[in-house]
């Protein structure tokens, strides 16, 4: 459950991070449209909101919120490191994006 929580938070922050113009440019080789950024951020928020009940399920009502804040911070850090330190050759191919 804790592992699932971690993955969920990493994906959420992944959406937040990739919505950023510079990181989107680096990893998708095109700048995001404002709607795309907005959409990605909205997905990030939904995933983050969903991770809260997962943390409650993992550790209960007292320790769950503590675990949640810890995981949120940790996953933000992991995504920060990945986006800024993975070589620029690591990219995502996104067939859904309009040219």
């Amino acid at each position: 459950m804790t592992g699932l929580l971690f993955i969920l938070c990493v994906i959420a922050f992944g959406f937040f991070g990739l919505a950023d113009k510079k990181h989107h440019q680096t990893r998708f080789e095109q700048r995001p449209s404002p709607e795309r950024s907005h959409r990605m951020r909205r997905i990030g928020w939904i995933l983050l909101a969903f991770s809260f009940p997962v943390s409650i399920a993992a550790e209960g009502w007292i320790y769950g919120p503590v675990l949640w804040s810890g995981m949120v911070m940790c996953s933000a850090g992991v995504v920060f490191l990945m986006l800024n330190f993975l070589p620029e050759t690591v990219k995502w191919l996104d067939p859904g994006h309009k040219e």
Partner: peptide
């Protein structure tokens, strides 16, 4: 600037590093 980290930019890099360690773990 949540995910910003400008590398090899001297003072700006230090600022981004300081901001990252501060903001990402701000609740803590």
């Amino acid at each position: 600037d949540f995910f910003t980290f400008r590398r090899h930019k001297g003072q700006r890099t230090w600022l981004d590093g300081h901001n990252a360690t501060a903001v990402l773990a701000l609740p803590f």
